[in-house]
Amino acid sequence: MKVIGFIGPSGTGKSHRASWVAREHGTDFIIDDGLLIKGNTIVAGVSAKRESTKIASVKRALFTDPKHAEDVVKALKNNDTQVLLIIGTSDGMVEKIAARLGLGPVAEKVYITDVASEYEIKQALSTRREQGKHVIPVPTFEIKKDFSGYFLDPLQIFRRKGKGSYQLVGEKSVVRPTFSYMGNYTISDYTIYQIVEYVTSNIEGVSKISRFRAENRPDGIYIEMDLVLIYGYMIKKLLREVQEQVSEQIKHLTALNIRRMNVVAKSLVMDSRKS
């Protein structure tokens, strides 16, 4: 397997340009911050950006966990990888990753200064310092299941085809990791309840929520609620509408993944306006 290193200081825009550099060297396979990525898909690994501290993040990126390294090596073999791009902040980091994964020497090295101007690098560094944002070179839908509860923004990359014409060539995701110096953020269960209460109060056929429970887990949020419905509406259709609207609004407002939502029609009441 031919190993290519893509090297530059943290925050200089390596992940943003990773897909382009990989394609220029004839591969879709990239190792970036603990993840093995093929094209727009995460094949194996665990993102270092999920770790709660900077030290844990560095260890994850260097594959110090044998199980983590083993999973990525297995995926490389299963995909018959011939060329691999490894992203790192230094020559030493790229070489350590290659050694831990048993990939042999790094055959070629590309530096961020080879593919980005001084102005572009300064802009990337400014974004990292001021906003604490990190780029992962896969679409947002691909990582959302692993980054439930993080700030997630899609970043679409376009190429000019002609005057006033652009072609979408890829999508990346922007996250703010938990170890960001800008601090953590939390969303209380009561806030989730308030969102749900507001949404359901605007759905015709729902009288009120009689019981609500939200459980925030690492893979997403689990919701259970009992509803009092108004007599005369199709219950199954109404409960489905509640699930869809609540799920859509929570994802939009909080970036939390809804892993499960159990909705029960607990009782019925007559609508005094109809009677």
Rank of each mutant, 00 (worst) to 15 (best):
K122W: 10
L101Y: 00
T186D: 10
V43P: 00
E118S: 13
T140E: 15
V206W: 05
G220R: 00
G39R: 04
S126T: 07
K67D: 00
S272I: 10
R60Y: 00
D80G: 03
A22S: 08
P9T: 07
L85R: 03
T41N: 11
K161Y: 01
L152I: 08
G132I: 04
G162T: 06
G132Q: 07
V106F: 02
L85W: 00
G164T: 02
D80R: 13
A18I: 07
Q82N: 12
I87Y: 03
I258E: 09
K96G: 03
L227W: 04
F147S: 00
G162M: 01
K172V: 05
G162P: 01
L36R: 02
E120N: 08
D65N: 11
A107I: 00
R260E: 14
V110F: 02
V72C: 02
N262A: 12
V228M: 00
G88V: 09
S272W: 03
S126L: 13
V263A: 03
A98S: 13
R17M: 12
G45M: 04
I97D: 05
V174L: 15
T254C: 12
I31Q: 01
H252Q: 14
K2W: 06
R129H: 10
G102T: 10
A116K: 15
L103N: 06
I121F: 09
D33W: 01
Y185F: 14
Q245V: 05
N216Y: 05
F147D: 05
I203W: 09
V72A: 06
R23A: 10
H68A: 07
V242F: 05
A75D: 07
S57P: 03
T64P: 00
E118C: 00
T53N: 13
I223P: 11
D153G: 09
M1H: 10
Q167P: 01
N202F: 10
A75T: 03
Y193R: 14
M234W: 04
I230E: 09
D32A: 04
L103Q: 10
F141R: 12
K251L: 12
Y166T: 03
V43M: 11
R260Y: 01
S126C: 02
L253M: 11
S173Y: 03
R176V: 14
T64E: 15
F158E: 07
G132M: 12
K67Y: 04
L125S: 13
D91P: 01
F6W: 05
I97F: 04
